[in-house]
Amino acid sequence: MSFMTVLSILCLLGGFFFFFTATIGLLRFPDFFTRLHATGKGDTLAVFLSLLGLAFYEGISLTGLKILIIAIFMFIAQPTATHAISRAGMRSGVKPWMKENIES
């Protein structure tokens, strides 16, 4: 097993770990904004690590370069999308999870 394959396996495992924690956060957190916090941060890093692992496996080639460009695009676009969704929630009057807003 070459060095690049080991590196790609490590990156993919890290990506799977962050996907897993982001999904747990999505299922267990109490309200809209905290769930968005978990998925926004976790998924961004998970997608970046997974694509980086695939690029390491591919090596230096045109396909690897394309995968890296996709990774950079996701790294820019995904936090922006999360920001826009959270703003839309604030605009439409979603209450944050605070002590005075807890009803049950």
């Binding site: 922006t80 920001h83 703003r87």
Partner: peptide, 11 residues
């Protein structure tokens, strides 16, 4: 919203 506008203009 200046963040969304700027990122859209870049992308």
């Amino acid at each position: 919203d200046i963040i969304v506008k700027t990122i859209a203009r870049i992308l």
